[in-house]
Simulated scan of single mutants.
Amino acid sequence: MTPPHEWLQRQTREIELLRWTVKVLGADLAQRHYAAGLAGPHVPLPEEPAPFGLTSRACRQTDIEGYWIRHWCRALGTTPFYHRKLWEDGFILQVLWEQGVLQPGRRALGFAVGQEPLPAILASRGVAVLATDLAADDARAEDWIRTGQHGRNTDPLFRAHLSDRAEFDRLVEFRTADMAALPAALQDGSRDIVWSACAMEHLGSHERGMAFVEAAMRCLKPGGIAVHTTELNLDEAGETLSQGTTVLYQRKHLDALAARLAAQGHRMLPLDHAHPPGIMDQFVDVPPFEEGRVPLGPLTPPHLRLSIAGHPATSVGIVVIAGQGAP
């Protein structure tokens, strides 16, 4: 009879190989789509943007394969590939362009920017940007520093292919800010744009994330645009992560947020959270997600959907138009 500890070791090894097999099949699926010209390095990148009519929206395969993502890949310095983080950057940029605020003279405020490309892209279009992140000596910043995602100044935000350094420095500033307790000086109603990319789910709870969105609205002028991306649990009726370092929002939480914002005179654009039938929309990537941490070498499977603590999740973007204040 096999001793229990040896049986458990064997089961663990087999689970790891099953994960590897899932990633192999996913990577092959993605490569076939790239070879067919649906996305990937051989598709053309349009020079000019085009309207799509984005509202609040969940990530999906057809977006990665669509015109508007392809255009923003040019500024992002990449090709269209099946990854939700690319979708988040493209979504934020497309919304700002469609709302008419991606132009010279506008003022933007970004939260938890880390080393994002967005400040440089906004600045390349004449937008003045204040980029913020947690102070480096804040204990909550340790993981972001360790993984190279934390921002301390404007240096890691500069992108040489977008503008010269002098023009970038004229338009982009950096300061520390805690999203859980926004400085009063930022809540002065002077900005045309506020944004955050997958940050509000790291504030400890659903409530703290929603409170941040409400506070960020006070940074905007009437008519200003807020765009935030976060984690969406695709299982609407099941359990979710409600507290901890990462929480998962469900449709009901975002509906509640829309109602809270409306009570303060703001308008969240309708949420299109349909779960479409694309094969990449059905593929759920499983940990580990870091390249090279699989048994037989690095792979790049689709990453539009992923398992977070066993919950099927994706990225969702919300768009809010600032009103005059509570009625």
Rank of each mutant, 00 (worst) to 15 (best):
R10D: 15
R10W: 15
L18Y: 06
W20G: 01
V22N: 07
L29E: 12
H33M: 12
H33F: 13
A35Q: 15
P41I: 11
H42Q: 13
P44W: 04
F52D: 12
F52G: 14
T55F: 02
C59F: 08
T62H: 10
Y67L: 14
I69W: 09
C73I: 01
P80D: 14
L86Y: 04
E88V: 01
D89Y: 15
L93C: 00
L93D: 03
V95P: 08
V95S: 02
W97V: 05
L102E: 00
L102F: 06
P104I: 01
L109F: 07
G110Y: 03
A112K: 10
Q115G: 08
P117Y: 13
I121K: 00
L122F: 03
T132D: 05
L134K: 03
L134E: 00
D137Y: 14
D138W: 00
A139I: 10
E142L: 15
D143W: 09
D143S: 09
D143H: 09
R146S: 12
H150C: 08
G151D: 02
R152V: 10
N153H: 10
A160G: 03
H161Q: 14
L162H: 03
D169V: 02
F174H: 12
R175A: 15
D178R: 13
M179K: 03
M179P: 05
Q187Y: 04
G189P: 14
I193R: 07
W195P: 02
W195H: 12
H202K: 08
H202Y: 03
G204S: 12
R208A: 15
G209T: 00
G209F: 01
F212Q: 04
F212W: 07
A215M: 07
R218D: 14
L220E: 01
K221D: 02
P222I: 06
I225K: 07
D235S: 12
G238T: 12
S242N: 10
G244I: 06
T245Q: 13
T246K: 09
V247W: 10
L257T: 10
L261V: 04
A262P: 04
A263I: 02
A263L: 06
H266N: 15
M268G: 04
L271D: 13
D281Q: 09
Q282E: 13
Q282L: 14
V294L: 13
G297E: 02
P298R: 07
H303Q: 08
R305C: 00
V320S: 02
I321Y: 10
